[in-house]
Design a binder for these strands. Sequence first.
DNA 1: CCGTATCCGGATGGATACTG
DNA 2: CAGTATCCATCCGGATACGG
Lengths: 138, 138
Amino acid sequence: MRDDADSRNSPDLAERFADWQDLGLDPHRCPVRDVLSHVGDKWTTLIVAALAGGPRRFGAIHRVIPDISKRMLIQTLRDLERDGLATRRVFPTSPPSVEYSLTPLGRSLLGPLTALVAWAERNHAAIDAARTRFRAET
Amino acid sequence: MRDDADSRNSPDLAERFADWQDLGLDPHRCPVRDVLSHVGDKWTTLIVAALAGGPRRFGAIHRVIPDISKRMLIQTLRDLERDGLATRRVFPTSPPSVEYSLTPLGRSLLGPLTALVAWAERNHAAIDAARTRFRAET
DNA sequence: CCGTATCCGGATGGATACTG
DNA sequence: CAGTATCCATCCGGATACGG
């Protein structure tokens, strides 16, 4: 499963990293760390994916991701809203209904995110194989 | 409100998500979740970036990422090794020296990862602004 | 229907001290 | 130099119950 086509971009990361070094690499002020932790947390990516198709109501998202608690769903949506990746619209119906949708900024994340997801799907077999091999050697 | 420039890639994610649904979306067996959590954890991305330029010794990595404990450095390197993203070579010198480097699989991750990092760098200003705005409104 | 509040177990990760 | 072992604080996130 060689994929050297992708490694043409790789020098970039080494260079950027060197730049971060020069800036002090304070993890608490590093925007990259900030954003990536967002991506890596338990629910953000799934929710962004759920909103990728268009606006959804709270309950709809919850139905689409059954194993998230309301607590975590709200919290993650709030974080997305806070960071300007999603918006929240309240319709004063009764009972109230709330609709979430991605902002342009949020949608601009879909490209890089999809690339990463595609990589995961392409290579999870190789990763599984590596794990099995690793366990066998120890 | 449409932002068609960036959203050309976006239908993919919505479709994939729908597929995951059909497969049951068991988080513990979802390869995507598995990989993304890897990317999102505190140190993996930094270490991969540090190895992007070529093989490095344990101490060299540690010097390049000063604020990681040896414990976490080892643990993260082990995980990378386990997943087939990095290799570990021991040179039986005295004192011993150990060299880590990315595998082809690991290097193939650099492309998607760099795209995500580039997004983070492009948009962290917008995110910061959104946060300030959000705090102001509450 | 949408959200909040509280409690609590387990994972994460830092500090420190010790080996070969 | 490279790694291990132990202890301990913090945080993430689930369960539950309640409110508008």
